[in-house]
Design a protein around this nucleic acid. Structure first.
Lengths: 130, 130
DNA sequence: TGCTATGTTCGAGAAAACTCGTACTGCACT
DNA sequence: AGTGCAGTACGAGTTTTCTCGAACATAGCA
């Protein structure tokens, strides 16, 4: 980071702009909680790759959003965009733009409110082996 | 219950073949409990019509199987066959042949064993109004 | 300025699902 | 035998979804 312009000593009391809860980027368009539809959510979760994404978010990230690359999915970028968009538009995940990265997390509270037990189901899922 | 063996009047001790738990018709082919896959089950449930079928079975029939006609679905017969088959092949319902009728019920115990909470989710579903 | 990294949009081909008409099976009843 | 009923099987048309290449956009950085 460039200095604020302090020629001499410890400069101005620079406010450290961490990604604090207050000034997160706006979430991308998503359905409101009351518009969540069970059939749509189940449809979004009926794909193994998307199930894997959501489960990984649930199990391996409590507090952070994660960009596409974090998942280590071996698919072309446009495929990933497709699936992340499907999850977001169904209301399963929320996405925010951090600079270039678009990070996702699961809307756990919203899903719990509307479909109690669903999140646990996904977290407990075990992918087909082979 | 009929008498055990009355010597004189009532002729042969005819065994009343009611659809008792013991001699139900064999279920149609279906996946075993251990082969139930969450992604498949969710896929089967991601259709509003099928969700309606399963929910109605859960809410309005505790103890009986129901034939296709019972649901009062306004669709051609071949469409219904398609959806009932989808549910059965995903492992959501069990179907038995009673003479001409093919009756369905939800595999509640099996689903509970593999995907606890899922059945409640479907029972609580409310179809989109319009 | 140009390179790299992250991710989007568009579009097309392939695969799967849905819808439903038509023809068929099998039982029951007169 | 003939009719009606419950439901299946097949096949075609339509729609949706999946998959992924190609081209584009933008931020950071040398």
């Amino acid at each position: 980071m460039p200095s604020t312009a302090s020629p001499v000593s410890p400069p101005a009391p620079v406010i450290r702009v961490l990604p604090a809860p207050a000034d997160l980027p706006e979430p991308l368009p998503e359905p409101a909680v009351r518009d969540l539809r069970l059939e749509t959510v189940l449809g979004a979760l009926s794909d193994p790759l998307r199930l894997r994404i959501v489960r990984k978010l649930l199990l391996e990230s409590e507090h952070f959003d994660h960009s596409c690359g974090w998942f280590g999915l071996d698919r072309p970028k446009s495929s990933l965009t497709h699936h992340f968009k499907a999850l977001r538009e169904a209301g399963v995940t929320r996405q925010r733009q951090y600079g270039l990265e678009r990070r996702s997390h699961v809307r756990v509270a919203d899903l719990d409110a509307r479909f109690p037990g669903l999140v646990e189901l996904v977290a407990a899922w075990e992918p087909a082996e082979d």
